[in-house]
Amino acid sequence: MGQITFGTTLRGTSGIAEFAQNVENLGFDVLGCGEHVMFHTPVANTFISLSVAAGATQRLKLLSSIVLLPLYPAALAAKMGAALDVASNGRYMFGVGIGGEFPKEFEACGVPVNQRAARTNEALDVITKLWTEENVSYQGRFTTLNEVTIAPAPTQKPHPPIWVAGRQDGAMKRAAKYANGWLPYMFTPEQLHASLETIHRYGDELGRDMSTFTPGVFIFTSVHANGDTGRQRCIEMLSRQYNQDFTKLVPRYALAGTPEECRKRLQEYVDAGAQMIILAPGCAEEYADDNISLVAKEVIPEFR
């Protein structure tokens, strides 16, 4: 196995440039940002926030974690992804998911929530073509293209890496067909290992060479010298963010506790196959700087 790639995510919607510079200086490889149109808490747009981060940094890869792809016309998502890849000099990573946990935002965007998987699959087909071909014509269920060219094309060739996120079987099939990597969230190491076996099986059925496919995992992380404090901060943040009680879920799905406890748990994910690990802040914004500093200095070095 090669070098493990480590990332974190933006902790909020302001102070992006400064936070991104700090993340880069701490030695992280990747900075992620998710999105919603609306959610239980204030939330960013991945393209906008990562564009700010791109202008403030030199080498950090910039990961959409994730684009809610069914909410975009496929050609528009292709244009925005290509534009961000060009603006960042080839540092963009296109992470996608289907969403659905907040149906009101689908209604607001005029997209039936039960079409989200089908729209995402078609969009990935369209976007891959638009990123690699000129004068693309396409007739699909949701997309009609008549000799469309996205210019400038993405800087990365053949295109920015596509990461499929999710937890369900449909997402695994999507990853096997369209993606360069798999980025599940709220996953145990055991689930990660099992999902990778499933994805490789689907890839083999499609006749795809999966040798360069990259397994990843997205983990909410709260590190503190006092393990109980780290865990409690994580429970409070995720319970608020997802509007449900995370008391029993944090020990299962998050990385929370002392640096030593987090290193031990992280090793289980590495053993399960993770090669890109996104350690998203799992605590309130006022603790985020201290949290990622502890992650960078007392958790990650053991895996370098």
Rank of each mutant, 00 (worst) to 15 (best):
R141Q: 14
I127H: 05
G90S: 09
E105Y: 02
E122R: 09
M172R: 15
E107S: 06
R116V: 09
G81Q: 05
G81D: 06
R116L: 09
M186H: 10
L183N: 08
A117N: 14
G140W: 01
A151C: 03
L145S: 01
K173R: 15
G110M: 07
E133K: 03
H159M: 15
L84H: 10
R141N: 04
A151I: 03
T128I: 02
G90D: 12
K79P: 12
A83H: 10
I199P: 05
I162V: 15
L196A: 00
I127T: 06
L145M: 02
L183E: 03
Y178N: 11
Q156F: 08
W131T: 00
V86K: 01
T128F: 01
H159Y: 14
W163Y: 15
N114S: 12
F187M: 14
F102Y: 15
L145R: 00
Y92T: 09
T198V: 10
Q191W: 08
L84W: 11
K177P: 02
K104S: 12
H159A: 11
G95D: 13
R167V: 14
G95F: 10
L183H: 11
P154I: 01
Q168F: 07
M186R: 13
Y178V: 05
V111A: 05
D85S: 10
K173V: 14
E107C: 02
N114C: 03
A176T: 01
I199A: 04
D85T: 10
D169V: 09
K157T: 15
F142W: 11
F106I: 10
E134M: 01
S195Y: 03
P160M: 11
M93D: 05
R91K: 05
A78N: 03
E105G: 04
Q115T: 14
E105Q: 06
S195V: 05
E101M: 09
G99F: 02
